[in-house]
Amino acid sequence: MKVSVMTFNIHHGRGTDRRLDLNRIAEMIRKSNADLIGLNEVDRFFSKRSMYRDQISWLAEQLQMEYAFSPSITLKSKNSETARQYGNALLSKFKILKNKSTHIHSSSKFREGRSILETVIEIDSQPLQVLVTHISFNPSSRRKQIQHILKFVELNPLPTVVMGDWNMNPGSKSWRTVAKIMHDVWNISGEDRGFTYPSYRPRKRLDYLFISEDIKVIDTEVVDFMPEASDHLPVLAKLELSTL
């Protein structure tokens, strides 16, 4: 079974030209033809910066996909019952069987919370575990967050994809810790350096797709046809799942 998976930090829809335009994000996803899309920096009724829009439900409606959301920040207002949220999300062409949001370690010195979205997707009657996260740039917090993720992966036997903005460099200590347990798809089939940030003239690889050893990589690419849509470029991988 073949499936296309993409990870994309959308910067709440605000592009490098400072325009808020979710239509560009939707167009990039649509043209990529990805089946599963992990998103970082997604707003739900969060603030004026994104016009208080529920971004993930809007994208899901436009693209006719199922979705799940994991808030990393939740703020409540005295004047509204609607929580203001910001975090990670998943869009799926396949049925989402399960989804759970878990907060993971974040240093009190930094305002931004961190979470992991844990989902199980049904593809041709077979389950695939898909995790979406956005790891801290703080080394101490990042180390603890990675430990949490890897422990979860090791305790779960399903074929697994973990994707998101990891705020780490390939070959770094953090990367090596993950690579002992999972495979970095870019190292298997990517060309050049796979830089994703900043979207114009990228010079860092911050966005990753990691897979368990029971998944095969066919092809991997950085999607760069519309760099103005966000400050990150998405990474797209075509995977092959073993049949039971």
Results as ranks from 00 to 15, higher is better:
1 M>F: 13
1 M>G: 11
2 K>Q: 15
3 V>A: 04
4 S>K: 12
5 V>Q: 01
7 T>F: 05
10 I>F: 04
11 H>Y: 13
15 G>P: 02
16 T>G: 10
17 D>A: 08
21 D>E: 08
24 R>G: 06
24 R>Q: 08
25 I>G: 00
26 A>C: 08
26 A>N: 06
28 M>Y: 07
30 R>H: 12
32 S>A: 09
34 A>P: 01
36 L>M: 04
36 L>D: 00
39 L>W: 00
44 R>D: 06
48 K>V: 13
48 K>N: 15
49 R>C: 07
49 R>Q: 14
52 Y>T: 06
54 D>A: 13
56 I>C: 02
56 I>A: 03
58 W>K: 10
59 L>Q: 02
63 L>M: 08
65 M>G: 01
66 E>Q: 13
71 P>R: 02
71 P>F: 02
72 S>I: 06
72 S>F: 07
83 A>I: 12
85 Q>P: 09
85 Q>I: 11
86 Y>M: 08
90 L>R: 01
92 S>D: 03
98 K>E: 10
98 K>L: 14
100 K>A: 14
100 K>Y: 11
104 I>L: 03
106 S>K: 11
113 G>Q: 02
113 G>T: 04
114 R>V: 03
115 S>G: 09
115 S>D: 06
117 L>E: 00
118 E>Q: 11
118 E>S: 10
121 I>T: 02
122 E>S: 10
125 S>F: 11
125 S>C: 14
129 Q>E: 13
129 Q>C: 10
130 V>R: 00
133 T>H: 06
134 H>L: 06
136 S>Q: 05
137 F>A: 15
144 K>A: 09
149 I>A: 03
149 I>F: 02
151 K>C: 14
156 N>M: 13
157 P>E: 11
161 V>R: 00
164 G>D: 02
166 W>G: 07
167 N>R: 03
168 M>S: 05
172 S>V: 06
173 K>P: 10
176 R>Y: 09
181 I>L: 09
182 M>L: 11
184 D>M: 04
186 W>T: 01
189 S>F: 10
190 G>Y: 01
190 G>I: 06
194 G>K: 01
195 F>C: 07
196 T>K: 01
198 P>S: 09
203 R>C: 12
204 K>R: 14
205 R>G: 02
208 Y>T: 05
209 L>H: 04
210 F>C: 05
212 S>E: 07
218 I>N: 15
219 D>Y: 09
221 E>Y: 09
221 E>K: 13
222 V>E: 01
224 D>F: 10
229 A>S: 08
229 A>N: 04
230 S>Q: 03
230 S>L: 05
232 H>I: 04
232 H>F: 07
235 V>C: 04
239 L>V: 03
240 E>I: 09
240 E>N: 10
240 E>C: 12
243 T>A: 13
